[in-house]
Amino acid sequence: MIFSIIMLITALLCAVAIVREVRRKNFFAVGFAGITFVVFGWFAVATIISIITTGGGAPTAH
């Protein structure tokens, strides 16, 4: 769960970076921040959904 929260915080910081760099008209940075936002955001949401639906964290050996 901590890992998904860290990824979500990273995605939110990238969203802030996208807005800031669009104002500066630095589209190279907007591209990298956009890609990072999509990747980290997708993994964060997928991890949170996985934790909610499976009812736990990593699988354990029985």
Rank of each mutant, 00 (worst) to 15 (best):
R24Q: 10
A33V: 06
T10R: 09
W42S: 12
A17V: 06
I18G: 01
I35M: 14
V22H: 11
I9C: 09
G41Y: 05
V16S: 12
W42V: 11
F40H: 01
A33G: 05
A17C: 14
A15G: 15
F37T: 04
L8G: 12
G55W: 01
S50M: 12
I35G: 15
T36G: 10
I52M: 11
C14P: 05
V22D: 06
G55N: 04
F40G: 00
A33Y: 06
A11Q: 09
L12V: 10
A15V: 06
L12Q: 02
F28M: 09
A29L: 15
T36A: 14
V19M: 07
V16D: 04
G34W: 00
I35T: 13
V22E: 09
F28E: 05
M7R: 12
R24N: 10
F40L: 03
R20L: 08
M7Y: 15
A46S: 04
L8C: 13
F32P: 03
F28G: 11
A17Q: 14
G41N: 05
T47P: 03
T47M: 15
T36H: 06
T36I: 08
T10G: 13
V38M: 11
S50E: 13
A46C: 03
R24E: 05
F43T: 02
V39Y: 02
R24K: 13
F43A: 07
K25T: 07
T47R: 14
C14Q: 12
V30L: 03
A17D: 13
V19F: 05
C14E: 14
A46M: 09
T47K: 12
S50R: 08
F32M: 08
I49D: 06
F32N: 10
A29E: 14
A46T: 04
K25M: 13
V38S: 07
V22Y: 09
V38Q: 02
V22K: 10
F37H: 04
V38I: 14
T53D: 14
A11L: 06
F37G: 03
E21N: 15
F43M: 08
E21Q: 14
V30I: 00
T10P: 00
A44L: 04
F32H: 09
F27G: 11
G34Y: 02
